[in-house]
Simulated scan of single mutants.
Amino acid sequence: MKLAWKRGTALLLVLVMIWGLCGCQKGKSIRFTTGLGDKELFKIGDEVCTRQEAMVFVLSQKKNYERSYGKEIWDVKIYGEPFSAYMRDNLQDFLAKMKCMVLMADKYKVELNDEEKLRIEQAAETYFEGLPENVIQASGIGEPDVKTVFHDYYVSNKLMKQLTADVSTEISEDEARVITVQQIFLSTEDLSAEEKEEKRKTAQKVKEQADAGADFAVLGKNNNESESFELQIARGDTEMQFENAAYALSTGQISEVVETAYGFHVIKCINNYDEQETAKHKTELARKCKEDRFYEYYDAFVKTIVAEYNEKAWKAIDYGQEFGEPQTDFYEVYDQYFGAEIY
């Protein structure tokens, strides 16, 4: 049921969404044919992506997730395959998109000034100096590879900024408003008309008890048929009937019985304006406005791409492999030199 969705940091949601740390995953994925060298993962136009470049991202992802979840994370099954394979597939899409954006940067005349070129060189040097010798040997990464990665990542950011410079990102407080509610849900799925009417009567009784001062949490414990009792939601997260009723409430108010395609709901508003989460959501919405505009350009460009893909080289990338632990992190170094800019 859609209403069981909850904003937060549950492990499954983290596993599904982690590639957001690397960049946007919207747009058409790219699949390639074979015919490259052992260390070449793919070629798009004149742009070649090597295993060493990919390893810069692998090392940072591996370091971050093993610290949070342990080395066993790579064997966790997600969508029926090991998490390591899931990450590798996402890495393929991400790197392909980044290389496409580098090609697009040429088309749209994105140029780097001397100061930007210097920062790229400094960032690459800082990152490479933080790699112990055993990590360098195991990963095969060289300083030129690191410089290429920082260059491509920065150029991709600059391209997106240039193509979306005129996009309005003004989002109203109400449009971005995040609220917290509690719900008592009675399912009507696969019920007869008579059975649905009985559920409606039960929901109405719950509503009357809540209005009379009964503890809503106790009512929920005794009547709620959803896995979720307390929900933090933004507009668009739930069915329209639920959203309209929830957003009409003030803090502490209880709704009338609300009917959706799934059943009946009695909703209590716990916080009708979570200021901190609303600010975060406003940033997300503004970013989405820019992404939508950017992918109008990107999707059209991808259709013109001819690419080659080295399946054997890709399969050899294993997040579960031991490379040693780098003393540096790509994203941290990028943030140090360029700010928290990710495309």
Rank of each mutant, 00 (worst) to 15 (best):
S187Q: 12
K147D: 02
V155P: 02
S84A: 07
G37Y: 06
D335H: 15
I267K: 13
V76L: 10
C22S: 11
V102I: 09
N244I: 11
E311A: 12
G320F: 02
A85I: 12
E256H: 14
V102M: 07
K312W: 00
V48P: 03
K107F: 07
V218K: 15
I73V: 15
K62G: 08
V102Y: 11
L36H: 07
A4N: 15
S29Q: 11
A85S: 08
E230N: 06
Y247C: 02
A214Q: 10
D166E: 15
G213Y: 11
Y154Q: 06
N113P: 04
K26R: 14
D89A: 15
I305F: 06
Q209H: 05
F229C: 06
Q182P: 01
G213I: 09
E81F: 05
S156Y: 06
I30Q: 03
F323H: 05
K62I: 06
F83I: 04
L21I: 13
L41N: 04
K315G: 03
S250I: 02
F338D: 11
L285V: 05
Q276K: 15
R88M: 11
D93N: 13
K26C: 08
E143W: 02
I305R: 05
N244V: 10
F42Y: 14
A300S: 11
G142P: 00
E125G: 03
W19M: 10
L249G: 01
A246D: 05
A85Q: 10
K99E: 14
L11E: 09
R177I: 09
D237M: 15
D329I: 09
A261L: 14
D190I: 00
E230C: 07
S192Y: 04
K2R: 15
G339W: 10
V56D: 04
I270S: 03
